[in-house]
Structures are given as structure tokens and as C-alpha cells.
Amino acid sequence: MQNYLEFNFKISPLQPWNEILMAELIEIGFDSFTEEAEGILGYIQKDLLNKDELKALPIFGNEEVKVEYSFQEMPNINWNEEWEKNFSPINIDDKVLIRAEFHESVPGMHEIIIQPKMSFGTGHHPTTHLMIQQMMDFDFNGKEVLDMGCGTSVLAIYAKQQGADHVKAIDIDEWSVENSKENAERNGVKLDIEQGTADNLGKENYDIILANINRNILISDISTYVSVLNDGGKLLLSGLCFFDVDDIMEVCRENGLELKKQLQREEWVSLLLEK
């Protein structure tokens, strides 16, 4: 198991700054969160923490919000146990339910069953919700699909369940790759799963690319996504806060992408683009 640090962030005012802080923390290596009455608990692997990056986060220089924090080391934390304490099913428009095996099934809803190896922070819920909400309008039948930064492979699993011909799922994290394989088997679907980054791309082309990552990686990798996206293909992005949209759209336009639909949930945004 990894040695983690738990940061206790006190935020005033809480909204919308808790979501903004989570977005900034994700970009420097924090991978999970728990929302508290006065702020958030944030978790990062001890060897990934860069104190200078933390102190330089834009939110600390913003006069509209006050953020204080303390931290403690949590060696050998049992992430499955922590996740089970904090994870609730994700209901998308009463049509799709993302749940764990220990949650009750809901008749009439399409279900995706997952069991992550790491804490599934509540800060991730809006982006997952937005991605699935956009995907519900897609025609996946016979399509070639790529899920970049697949995590638990919820999106890849849903695409395959909806009729995609071939789905590749890629993540830089070894735990995510192993967890994706387990979740694919748990849902009775076949995925092509591998560890890596956008550098893995180039041998295959796709009709639909899904990327729920973060602003910096998206800006860096959009041109690579476009290079393997078929003409008329869809690129669906999330992991973005509302204040990231202008920067992302500038890169998208430079790469010949047209915005088709934008959704927002809390402070998080999803963008559907077409080549």
C-alpha cells in the first residue's frame, strides 16, 4: 500500500471554492477527496507532494476566499475501506446508476457496477455525471472508442454496453489498469486496456474519444487526440472547471474542433467537440 498524506482544508466561504480548490489540487497530484462541513479532506501520495506547488496554488492568492490547512501522514491506509465509507451511488437523470456491489440495484435503470482500488472522492462525481449525461445521446453502435485516463473505466464500460465495436481504455496508473480489468469483467464486457499516456496513440483511429482528466493534460494532449480522431468524430472532455473553458477552447479551435454542446454541474464543465 502507498503512504498517503491527509490534508484538512478549511475554506471560507465554502462555495464555490471547495470545488475550485479540488480542481487545483488534482493538478498537483491529489487523487481523492472527502467533503466536510467546513471544507475538504484531500489525499496525496507522500512521495508526490511538492510543497512549493501547493503554496503556489492560485486560490491562496485570491482575496475572495480564505483557506487554511493542516496535514498528517496516514501510512498504509486501507483505501477500499475508506471508499466504502464515503462512496454513494451516482444517479444520472434516473437513467444510469453507477454503484458498487454492496449497493442495492434500482429497477428500470441502466447499471454500471464498480469497485475502485482507491478512494472515489466526491469531487469526481460531477465530471462522471456530466460525461455519462453527454454520452447518453451518442450512437455507439459499431463505433471505435477511446477512453483516455480511464480510471475505473466507467465510461469505457458504458460505451461498450451501448454497442461500441471496440473500446480502448488507457491510464497512466497501474492500479487503474488492474481495476479497469476487474470492473470490465464485473460488468461482462471486453475492453482493450493498457497502461500509458497519449504517447501510446497513433496506430488506431477512433470515432469517439472520451477524456475526463484535467486542464493541463488536456491542453497538452488535444492535438494528439485530434490526430487519431476520424473526420466527423466526437471528442468529449471533462475534468474542467468553468474558468478553464476559454483556455481549452482556444486549443480546440487551433486543432479544428467545433464546440457542439457544453454542460455544467456545480463548478465542473463538460465539452462535446466535433472534428
Rank of each mutant, 00 (worst) to 15 (best):
F120S: 04
I132G: 03
H124R: 08
E144G: 01
L57V: 12
Y43I: 05
E84R: 10
E68A: 11
R99Q: 07
N80T: 13
I132M: 02
V106A: 08
K66I: 11
K95V: 15
P116K: 03
F71W: 15
M118R: 11
P89M: 01
E63C: 02
N80I: 12
E104I: 00
L54N: 07
S70F: 00
F140N: 11
N50L: 02
M135P: 03
F60N: 09
K95F: 04
D139E: 13
T152V: 07
Q134S: 14
I92R: 03
E144A: 11
K66A: 14
F140W: 05
K117M: 06
G149V: 08
P75A: 02
I59W: 05
H129K: 08
M131L: 12
N50R: 10
P126M: 05
D94A: 11
V67F: 06
V65Y: 05
F138E: 12
H129A: 03
L146P: 10
M118N: 07
E63K: 14
W83V: 10
H124G: 15
K51Q: 12
E63L: 07
F71K: 02
I90Q: 03
N141D: 10
Q45R: 13
G123E: 04
D47Q: 14
E101S: 15
L130I: 10
E104P: 06
H125P: 01
I92T: 08
S105K: 14
L146N: 09
K66C: 02
Q45E: 15
K143H: 07
L146C: 06
L97Q: 08
I112F: 02
G151Y: 03
E63T: 11
